[in-house]
Design a binder for these strands. Structure first.
Lengths: 206, 206
DNA sequence: CCTACCGATCGGTAGG
DNA sequence: CCTACCGATCGGTAGG
């Protein structure tokens, strides 16, 4: 007996979720990050997902709705990853975990060749959708601020402007992909560890 | 006597340079930064520059050539600004000047609404053009590395990996536009000063 | 620097 | 009646 290709692999645990829909989201996420929103056609996404362009529109009302769902999922998943990486220790330990996880996350994305940051991609959305997306990302941002505040309260961090410091640390991590190349001197984990040290220095008075 | 609109303003000092060409470059720089390369049509640039789309192609062989020239000019001008801002003092003074100038430069661009970083824009170029552009930007990158090395030599900086530290500082400055908003608590100069302090902390052992 | 266009491809939708 | 698609083509616009 030989299994048909369709029978290979794990069955969907949630049968309300369409496998085709997941393939579209995965392809769109990769291509939007690599070529940008305007640089990615529905045809390219469809080809990558193994279907016709027209079928994209059965699953998503428009290309912009697809972008919106991609970014929404990215923010939710990123927060889940970060929250899981950050334990319950001191502010130093938690900041190091946060930065390490954030940087490593950016460097171990589905594809190694990201060119466009999430801020660039979000700029194609309507202002209302951008506002909604910021709300989705709030826990993401707040977790870092809470860690910084914890350090200030504990007396281990000296921070004049907490918001600006958190933006600087986030930007440093977010755009690590702009210079990192595989097979360089440091791997993703080593870069994450080095970035964690840099972030800790940013919270320490000279 | 009433001056015609065309008579108002300063005459071009260099008549070999086409005013139209400069208008195209200025419009393209603004729109590429705001909407990205693929999100900016030749028609939009032409309208902003006060001419027909077809006329763009009298001044530039292709849209990609226009992008190449825009990024080339940005890199050269940015380096000139940074080199002028950095004096001959100690490494601490020079690093503070560099970061202050870099951040302020990003926040006082022709338009206040940048969404796309230079790395995103460069990714639309051919690999060969990207390599050339990196060569153009070398002095830009090297100036920061020289300042960091000076601090290490003077004993005022403690840096384990000079290249990664320089990338982190550059990224922090480069993407300050992603969170900065006019009329916020801090103006561009204050953010630059705060970033200078953060960069100095990054070079100081805990 | 403009008018008049081209081959192709864009995002999106038709009937079946 | 539903789902998950297909081949073909819509009206407009892109770079050139």
């Amino acid at each position: 007996m030989v299994s048909t290709p369709r029978a290979v692999g794990s069955a969907a645990l949630i049968d309300e979720e369409s496998p085709a829909r997941e393939r579209i989201l995965a392809a769109a996420t990769r291509f939007f990050r690599q070529f940008g929103y305007e640089g990615t056609s529905i045809t390219k996404i469809a080809k990558e997902a193994g279907m016709t362009p027209a079928n994209i529109y059965w699953h998503f009302p428009s290309k912009l709705d697809l972008l919106r769902e991609v970014l929404h999922a990215v923010y939710l998943n990123s927060y889940a990853d970060l929250a899981a990486a950050v334990g319950d220790g001191t502010a130093e330990e938690r900041l190091a975990d946060y930065v390490q996880a954030y940087a490593a996350m950016q460097l171990t994305s589905p594809d190694a060749r990201s060119n466009f940051g999430y801020a660039s991609l979000a700029s194609s959305l309507s202002l209302e959708d951008q506002r909604e997306l910021i709300q989705t990302g709030k826990p993401y941002v707040n977790l870092l601020r809470e860690i910084l505040q914890q350090g200030v309260d504990e007396g281990s961090f000296v921070i004049e402007n907490l918001a600006v410091t958190s933006f600087a640390i986030s930007n440093m991590c977010e755009y690590v992909f702009t210079w990192f190349r595989d097979h360089g001197r440091l791997d993703a984990e080593q870069v994450g560890a080095y970035y964690a040290e840099l972030a800790l220095r940013m919270t320490t008075e000279r």
